[in-house]
Write a protein that binds this DNA or RNA. Sequence first.
DNA 1: CGCGTTTGACCCGCGC
DNA 2: GCGCGGGTCAAACGCG
Length: 188
Amino acid sequence: MSAFNSAMNNTSQYQNPNPNPNYHQVADSTTTDQLDELFDFKFSDYFAFDGALEEEISTQANVESSFNGSSSSSTPLASNIRKVKKCKTNDEFRFAFRTKSTLEIMDDGFKWRKYGKKMVKNNPNPRNYFKCTSEGCGVKKRVERDRDDSNYVVTTYEGIHNHQSPNYIVHDNDNQMPWTLQPSSSLH
DNA sequence: CGCGTTTGACCCGCGC
DNA sequence: GCGCGGGTCAAACGCG
Ligand SMILES: [Zn+2]
């Protein structure tokens, strides 16, 4: 069906490329519940995208308030699914979204190593390239500030992790982590 | 000392 | 063939 399904079939349990923005803070705070909800919703949202070729789904999620509200610390963060696009066959898949955050602290629990920086045209801001440091995992990540809204950051994940997060966080959920994607059957 | 960031160079595909 | 745009490499540096 969709790339997601294929991916899940391959790994039997797909891991969200971008689980928890601002993971540290979450760990510090006790607002995990809300985050859980937040992410769940988010994923369902972008799940709506099927194996279409270059699809551009503009889904506005009103989650910033909850994030800001619950998080009393100093890192306002909100995620709005912007667009999801898939290229080529269902071998790999790309997932891009926009995050409202001045800071690019998006350590989701995976270790990323920056391997490149590039100045894209038509955009005064540089683009950063990251790669997952785990061996056998070639997941790449690309972070770039929005051209117009410097308060937003466009993050693009490419590939699928073939390992659990090094910072594996145990959650109360039965078998699903907050950042674990669910079968497409869960979406309507 | 091990490892991550930095940064310019290099590479590759594409359009002219 | 060349230039350009986007992506990656790797030497050097910095830091814990
Ligand atoms: Zn990985």
